[in-house]
Amino acid sequence: MAKQRSKSDLPTKICPVCERPFAWRKKWADCWDDVKYCSERCRRRRTQASS
């Protein structure tokens, strides 16, 4: 069985909408470079943040 990583070892990014850090998730394994927002809510609110 594979050794689990601690959450502090995972890569993180800063969400441009809420400006909070968010960590890598397994569902983002194939598209981590394309992920910009921490949640669907922030993705929908992206236009309000840029104004």
Rank of each mutant, 00 (worst) to 15 (best):
L10T: 08
Q48K: 07
D34W: 05
C15G: 08
T47C: 03
R41G: 04
A29I: 04
C31D: 15
D33Y: 03
K13C: 06
C18N: 03
T12L: 10
E19D: 00
R46T: 11
I14A: 02
R43V: 03
E40C: 04
T12S: 11
S39F: 04
R20F: 07
A23N: 07
K3Q: 02
C15L: 05
R5H: 10
D9S: 15
E19C: 06
C18F: 08
R41M: 13
W32H: 04
A29P: 01
I14L: 08
V35P: 02
E19A: 10
D30P: 01
C42V: 11
D34T: 00
K7Y: 09
R43E: 06
K36E: 03
W32Y: 14
D30V: 10
A49R: 12
P16K: 15
F22Y: 15
I14D: 11
S8A: 13
D30A: 00
S51C: 08
Y37R: 04
K27S: 15
W32I: 06
K26H: 14
D34F: 06
A23L: 04
W24C: 00
P21D: 12
S50C: 00
R46M: 12
C38F: 06
R25K: 14
A49W: 09
S6V: 14
C31P: 02
Q48A: 01
V35F: 11
M1K: 04
R5G: 09
S6G: 06
Y37Q: 14
Q4L: 10
I14E: 13
K26L: 05
F22L: 10
P16R: 12
K27N: 07
E40R: 14
E40Y: 02
A29Y: 07
S50Y: 07
K3T: 14
D34C: 04
S6K: 08
V35W: 00
V17I: 13
K7P: 02
R25G: 04
V17S: 06
D33L: 05
R46H: 12
S51M: 12
P11L: 05
P11N: 13
P11G: 05
T12W: 00
D33P: 01
Q48G: 12
L10D: 03
R43I: 01
C31Q: 10
Q48I: 01
D33V: 01
W32R: 13
K3I: 10
R44L: 10
K7M: 07
Q4H: 08
D34M: 01
R5Q: 06
C38T: 08
S50L: 15
Q48W: 03
P16I: 13
T12K: 14
C31F: 02
R41Q: 09
R41F: 10
E40M: 08
Q48R: 02
Q48V: 00
K26Y: 07
K3M: 01
R43L: 05
C31A: 11
S39Q: 09
L10H: 02
R43Y: 09
S50E: 12
W28E: 14
W24P: 04
R44K: 13
K7V: 11
K13I: 07
K3D: 11
D34Q: 09
C38I: 00
K27A: 13
S6W: 04
R46W: 08
D9N: 12
